Lab assay of single mutants.
Amino acid sequence: MGFKLLSKLLVYLTASIMAIASPLAFSVDSSGEYPTVSEIPVGEVRLYQIADGVWSHIATQSFDGAVYPSNGLIVRDGDELLLIDTAWGAKNTAALLAEIEKQIGLPVTRAVSTHFHDDRVGGVDVLRAAGVATYASPSTRRLAEVEGNEIPTHSLEGLSSSGDAVRFGPVELFYPGAAHSTDNLIVYVPSASVLYGGCAIYELSRTSAGNVADADLAEWPTSIERIQQHYPEAQFVIPGHGLPGGLDLLKHTTNVVKAHTNRSVVE
């Protein structure tokens, strides 16, 4: 069995187990497998329904001669939608809004960016022009300005110390501490036991640490421990890039980060 097929099978099995364990909360999309990078042309966006009122959005972007996937989250909030992270750029984010209108038909009224990198804030200006209120932590807003990236308009308070959590509509926002970046936030959907790890969490097929220019490698494993301790009931975990899975993604990420750190020390 090929690795790609095995990865998709694991996603399907995880979703099936969740649907059985929580039949009222989960209505997993039966329309197909989780979209992969090879299936999404740059400039297009796919939506994948995880649970009743919960979707991931998947886009792709060219970077350094390669094409990478990027995940975000959409959560229903009454007759409105909360968006977590842009679709990595203005063109993708405009396509995301169009796809949401086509498939869901509810307005996106608020959006949260989970850290300051372009795959999370690139497209904020498109959201703002569409009347979406954009939010991020003060740290993310400051770092985005320093980096020359787009800056969300509103500040999220109460997320300055490791372990801080605040309720934001249908989700809980959690600051686990520094990891992929010093400002990275985690998003949890309690009604569906869905954990969105953003770039602080890796997919299972990833074996290298990737972009760690703004990471705190020493603190990252401790931050992941905080996530595990705060959300032990999480059933569906979405990484910032690639295929979702279960809580095993947290341990896998820790292993990859520690291996990278150990290699760096040896070198």
Score class of each variant (00 low, 15 high):
Met1Val: 09
Phe3Pro: 11
Lys4Ser: 02
Leu5Asn: 14
Ser7His: 02
Lys8Tyr: 15
Leu10Thr: 08
Tyr12Val: 09
Thr14Trp: 10
Thr14Tyr: 03
Ser16Trp: 04
Ile17Gly: 04
Met18Pro: 08
Met18Tyr: 03
Ala21Ser: 08
Leu24Ser: 12
Val28Cys: 11
Ser30Asn: 08
Ser31Cys: 11
Tyr34Gln: 09
Thr36Gly: 06
Thr36Ser: 08
Glu39Gly: 07
Pro41Ala: 03
Gly43Asp: 09
Glu44Gln: 04
Glu44Pro: 03
Glu44Trp: 06
Arg46Val: 06
Leu47Ser: 09
Leu47Thr: 10
Tyr48Cys: 09
Gln49Gly: 07
Ala51Phe: 11
Val54Leu: 04
Trp55His: 15
Ile58Glu: 05
Ile58Asp: 10
Thr60Leu: 04
Thr60Gly: 06
Ser62Gly: 08
Phe63Trp: 03
Asp64His: 14
Val67Gly: 06
Val67Leu: 03
Val67Cys: 05
Tyr68Glu: 07
Tyr68Cys: 06
Pro69Met: 12
Asn71Ile: 05
Glu80Cys: 14
Leu81Arg: 00
Leu83His: 00
Leu83Arg: 00
Ile84Val: 14
Asp85Cys: 00
Thr86Lys: 00
Thr86Phe: 02
Gly89Ser: 11
Gly89Gln: 15
Ala90Ile: 11
Lys91His: 02
Asn92Lys: 10
Ala94Met: 09
Ala95Ile: 06
Leu96Asp: 00
Ala98Gln: 13
Glu99Thr: 09
Glu101Ile: 06
Glu101Gly: 11
Lys102His: 02
Gln103Ile: 14
Gln103Gly: 08
Leu106Ser: 06
Pro107Asp: 14
Pro107Gly: 09
Val108His: 01
Val112Cys: 06
Val112Asp: 00
Phe116Arg: 07
Arg120Asn: 01
Val124Asn: 10
Val124Glu: 03
Asp125Met: 14
Leu127Ile: 13
Ala129Trp: 14
Ala130Phe: 01
Ala130Gln: 01
Val132Thr: 14
Thr134Gln: 15
Ser137Leu: 05
Glu145Pro: 00
Glu147Val: 07
Glu147Phe: 13
Ile151Phe: 15
Thr153Asn: 00
Thr153Glu: 15
Gly158Trp: 10
Ser160Cys: 07
Asp164Asn: 13
Asp164Val: 12
Phe168Asn: 10
Gly169Arg: 07
Pro170Ile: 12
Pro170Asn: 10
Glu172Lys: 12
Leu173Ser: 03
Leu173Ile: 00
Phe174Glu: 11
Ala178Lys: 07
Ser181Glu: 04
Ser181Pro: 01
Thr182Trp: 11
Tyr188Phe: 12
Tyr188Glu: 06
Pro190Met: 12
Pro190Phe: 15
Ser191Leu: 11
Ser191Thr: 04
Ser191Val: 08
Ala192Trp: 04
Ser193Gly: 08
Val194His: 01
Leu195His: 01
Cys199Arg: 02
Cys199Phe: 04
Ile201Phe: 00
Tyr202Met: 15
Leu204Thr: 04
Leu204Phe: 03
Ser205Asn: 14
Arg206His: 04
Ser208Asn: 02
Gly210Asn: 11
Asn211Lys: 07
Asp214Arg: 12
Asp216Gly: 08
Leu217Glu: 06
Trp220Asp: 01
Pro221His: 14
Thr222Gln: 13
Glu225Cys: 09
Arg226His: 10
Ile227Gln: 01
Ile227Glu: 03
Pro232Ile: 11
Pro232Val: 14
Ala234Cys: 01
Gln235Pro: 07
Val237Ser: 10
Val237Cys: 05
Ile238Lys: 03
Leu243Ile: 14
Pro244His: 13
Leu247Met: 15
Asp248Gly: 07
Leu250Asn: 15
Leu250Tyr: 04
Thr253Cys: 12
Thr254Gly: 07
Asn255Trp: 08
Asn255Tyr: 04
Asn255Gly: 14
Val256His: 01
Lys258Pro: 14
Ala259Cys: 04
Thr261Phe: 12
Thr261Arg: 07
Ser264His: 15
Val266Ala: 07
Val266Arg: 06
Glu267Gln: 02
Glu267Gly: 07
